[in-house]
């Protein structure tokens, strides 16, 4: 059995085709909304099994870039993306690639908790159902339970799985959304300011959760809060006016930024 697991990991490593552990690679990414250019030649490498934070003032393009990674920008008709983004060396803007499958691999958690107006169970089971991940009810139950466990929500909701998801508190809702994303078995999880609508206690719980999830997933988080970036992330990228100004280990960025703009931002001169 152990052999199976190791070969599994080897397989994954072979599939990754990288030795430095890069999961997501972006090169010269530009985004246009109609005539307006929102991102300028963003190039970045994002490692697997760690948390990468995107920081920067409002409207700097960090969310826009995040939404390029699972092609959520496709849903905006006037939005156009150029450049190249790969996940495990696979071009995600390749026309032959299926966006539905991509989004199963790249989960997303949104700024405001957005549970579907269904029961807690159905919220988590939604992804596995549409992707046909479970053959039987028992398998589905299993996925729901493990996902809720991973989102540290199982203990709180195990007795009321049939209650509506919208009835939970804000922090619980957000963890439900994380469980929902995890249930599909993604490799990358994108989080777009996941704590901005939460109170400090709920925020602490979600941050704790992010820290645990990084053992299994490549996590990319957009945040307004520099403290949060410092707390949860291993690497940080600073965006300003659509330009990726600086990217590196979180410690370096916060203690020893090379760029003047980064320095101004983290010392609170603007933003």
């Amino acid at each position: 059995m152990l052999n199976v697991q190791t070969s599994e990991i080897e397989n994954r490593a072979v599939k990754l085709g990288t030795t430095d552990g890069t999961k997501v690679h972006a090169k010269d990414v530009n985004v246009y909304y109609g005539d307006k250019r929102a991102l300028f030649d963003v190039t970045v490498n994002i490692p697997d099994r760690s948390v990468t934070a995107f920081i920067g003032p409002s409207g700097c393009g960090k969310s826009t870039f995040l939404r390029c990674i699972n092609r959520m920008n496709d849903t905006i008709p006037i939005c156009r993306v150029t450049g190249k983004i790969t996940i495990d060396n696979e071009d995600i803007y390749d026309p032959s690639l299926d966006v539905v499958q991509l989004r199963a691999r790249v989960g997303m958690v949104f700024q405001k908790p957005n549970p579907f107006p269904k029961s807690i169970y159905e919220n988590v089971a939604y992804g596995p159902r549409i992707h046909g991940l479970a053959g039987t009810k028992a398998e589905l139950d299993h996925i729901v339970q493990t996902s809720l466990e991973k989102a540290a929500l199982w203990k709180e909701v195990k007795d009321r799985l049939n209650d509506p998801g919208t009835g939970l508190s804000g922090g619980q809702q957000q963890r439900l959304c994380i469980a929902r994303a995890v249930a599909v078995g993604p490799e990358v999880i994108l989080m777009d300011e996941p704590c901005s609508a939460l109170d400090p206690i709920a925020t602490a719980k979600v941050e704790e959760l992010i820290d645990e999830l990084k053992q299994n997933f490549c996590i990319i988080i957009v945040t307004h809060s520099m403290q949060q970036a410092a707390r949860v992330s291993q690497r940080t990228a600073f965006f300003h006016l659509g330009i990726l100004v600086e990217e590196g280990a979180t410690n370096d960025i916060f203690t020893n930024p090379t760029d003047k703009r980064t320095q101004d931002y983290i010392t609170g001169r603007f933003g």
Binding site: V4, Q101, P128, I143, V182, P186, N216
Partner: peptide, 24 residues
């Protein structure tokens, strides 16, 4: 091993490529 954290991830991995294509 089977209940390891990656359980759901392996659900996708364990299914054959043909299966996935047909479903899509």
């Amino acid at each position: 091993v089977e209940t390891a954290p990656m359980a759901t991830g392996t659900l996708i991995a364990s299914r054959s490529k043909q299966d996935i294509q047909a479903r899509i």
